[in-house]
């Protein structure tokens, strides 16, 4: 049986690439291939990960400069061919800036960086990313970001909801939606979204930092295990 092959894209300023490696290892995938941002080719893989960090210092706008690097053109190309792509935190910002995912991530409503555990309700468990979870299941994972306030116009939000493209919402441990459980003011409590074919996922929380019993929880590991199973 072949184990999932993945590539992790590294920009100058990326800082959670090793966290993603650890989670993919724990999920039983092959050792991921690290791809430097200046490369214009991505090896043949089942999964491309755009990890968290501060690509190019996030100096223009989070993810904006990375979205114009050659490697992102290669990612877009590959995504169009149906290769699974996941963007976590800064990676989510990059994928929205690159047009692979709708919407934008604005400054947190509280105007401060926020690092804490949040609860996420699984909104669509019928995808390669979420297959290990049950519909409506509540999982716990941390967020760590300045700009995680998801925004899209009402029509886009309607379409995302109508097409089952909301992946996760911030919720209470009981699965209720409330402003108190929403760490950044995201529209409709959205924590992660899919593209139209549900082969690209962007999310602000860090499942990779909830993938080891010593992290205090392993709810995030399911995402990587689900991918490992679904993509072989």
């Amino acid at each position: 049986m072949h184990a999932v092959k993945s590539a992790i894209v590294v920009f100058p300023g990326t800082n959670r690439e090793h966290d993603a490696v650890a989670a993919l290892r724990a999920a039983g995938g092959r050792e991921p291939i690290m791809v430097w941002h200046r490369e214009s080719e991505i090896p043949e893989v089942d999964l491309i990960v755009v990890p968290g960090g501060f690509s190019y210092g996030d100096y223009l706008r989070s993810g904006a400069m990375a979205a114009h690097s050659p490697i992102v053109r290669a990612i877009v190309e590959r995504a169009k061919r149906g290769v699974a792509v996941i963007g976590i935190c800064n990676g989510f910002q990059v994928l929205t800036e690159a047009g692979l995912l709708p919407g934008a991530l604005m400054r947190n409503a509280g105007l401060k960086f926020v690092c804490r555990d949040v609860h996420l309700r699984v909104e669509n468990a019928q995808t390669v990313f979420t297959a290990a979870y049950a519909q409506g299941q509540v999982i716990r994972a941390p967020v760590a970001h300045n700009d995680g306030n998801y925004f899209a116009d009402a029509a886009t939000l309607e379409r995302l909801e109508g097409e089952g493209r909301v992946a996760f919402r911030y919720a209470t441990p009981e699965g209720e939606l409330s402003d108190g459980a929403n760490p950044n003011g995201s529209a409709r409590h959205i924590a992660g979204v899919f593209n139209a074919t549900k082969t690209v996922l962007g999310l602000m929380p860090h499942p990779e930092n909830a993938s080891d019993p010593l992290h205090g929880g392993t709810d995030g590991l399911g995402l990587f295990q689900g991918l490992a199973r679904a993509l072989v």
């Binding site: 090793h18 966290d19 650890a22 960086f113 926020v114 690092c115 860090h206 993938s211």
Partner: peptide
């Protein structure tokens, strides 16, 4: 204060802020 600090990046924070000492695992798995 400490929620404004990323205290989890690197994935090795075993005992988080808010108690006595914090505990971090050595990197590299």
């Amino acid at each position: 204060i400490w929620e404004q600090y990323d205290h989890l990046v690197m994935g090795n924070t075993i005992v988080r802020p808010g108690g006595d000492a914090a505990v971090v695992r050595l990197p590299g798995g």
